[in-house]
Nucleic acid binder design. Structure first.
Length: 344
DNA sequence: CCAATTTGACCACG
DNA sequence: CGTGGTCAAATTGG
């Protein structure tokens, strides 16, 4: 099963490479800028890298390190590095039964292609609100702290930290925490959204759908102690506008999912993200929208203190993960999470 | 006028 | 006690 998805997403990835290459061809004329071309090339490389690493990985989660090494190669477009700030899991499993507020966490390195109009702060398709900035030891650049704009209106707990690399200032390291539970009203003409909606903490309708679905198998771990915060975000989807109307009860028809994530990943020409500007080639790493569903499930449920990072190579293809995760979910509750070795 | 950013204070954790 | 993360008042921008 998982394999099928893997294959599909793999194909998607390769198709992306192809499309990007076509675009590149169109930009070979003198009027196009260097940067544009370079940017495209990087994307192409990134796409192929992902495809390759997918192949290497198969469906299973393995040592992230291998990927890192692979990705360490010159092409650094939107690569994610795995994971978790260190915690060695071996020795730490002691009384960590009660998981802290550990939200799913993953980092992404984004290279900004200058000359394409997009510089500095990247737009990943979500709206963020900066709530802090701090100088970090040993780092030359300060780290910016962002949270989802809809934190209060919708209780979306997603946050991110952005810091630019010391070595290569064109690279930003973005550290995401928590999944978006908000329904991003880009330009979708939501009937309900028309109103100001102040006091409402939750939007029963929209959210419930997701939750129901997501909740489905999983939640419920031995101790309900786990705050919903932990779990919710990890389960929820990006709930893209597209699906809003035609999503019959159908579990987000897979085709749609595929499409979203396929297109959403990063081919600007296909869709121009409603939210992000329409720069020709703004890299809008939307793909990270749908990260580690499966992993989050796994990890958030676990008593581990930290996340095992999500296989970044599959980042683009939540679908595969989804399938995977669902399976997992069924099993989850009974799964012996107290067994640390499982994760190592 | 509202909403987003800035920035120093505050706080939790190791 | 230093460091990283968050809060919130002040400020800026639209």
């Amino acid at each position: 099963m998982a394999m099928e998805w893997e294959q599909k997403t793999l194909i998607s990835e390769l198709n992306q490479g192809k499309e990007l290459a076509k675009q590149l061809v169109n930009h070979l004329n003198p009027s196009s800028s260097h940067e544009t071309r370079e940017c495209l090339i990087e994307k192409i490389l990134s796409s192929y890298e992902k495809a390759l690493s997918m192949i290497n990985w198969g469906a299973c989660v393995e040592e992230p390190k291998s990927t890192i090494n692979n990705l360490e190669s010159p092409s650094f477009f939107a690569i994610t590095s795995p994971i978790c700030e260190g915690y060695d899991q071996d020795s730490k499993h002691k009384d960590v039964y009660k998981k802290r507020k550990t939200l799913p966490r993953w980092t992404e390195q984004v290279k900004v292609c200058s000359g394409t109009g997009l510089e500095g702060p990247l737009d990943d398709g979500y709206s963020w609100r900066k709530y802090g900035q701090k100088d970090i030891l040993g780092a030359n650049f300060p780290r910016g702290y962002y949270r989802c704009t809809h934190r209060h209106s919708q209780g979306c707990l997603a946050t991110k930290q952005v810091q630019r690399c010391d070595e290569d200032p064109t690279i930003f390291e973005v550290n995401y925490r928590g999944r978006h539970t908000c329904s991003q009203a880009s330009h979708l003409n939501v009937a309900s959204a028309s109103v100001k909606e102040n006091k409402r903490k939750f939007q029963p309708q929209q959210q419930s759908q997701e939750i129901v679905f997501n909740y489905g198998g999983g939640l419920k771990s031995e101790d309900m102690e786990t705050r919903e915060d932990d779990i919710f975000p990890s389960f929820s989807f990006p709930s893209t506008p597209i699906g809003s109307d035609n999503a019959d009860n159908n579990i987000f028809s897979e085709s749609i999912m595929l499409e979203n994530n396929f297109m959403g990943s990063f081919s600007p020409t296909f869709i121009s993200p409603a939210t992000s500007e329409s720069n020709l080639f703004s890299l809008s790493p939307r793909h990270m929208n749908s990260y580690g569903l499966g992993h989050n499930v796994q990890t958030s449920e676990s008593d581990l203190t930290d996340i095992i990072s999500a296989p970044t190579s599959v980042a683009n293809s939540p679908i595969g993960n989804l399938d995977f995760s669902l399976d997992k979910v069924d099993i989850d509750p009974n799964f012996p999470f107290d067994n640390p070795e499982f994760f190592s």
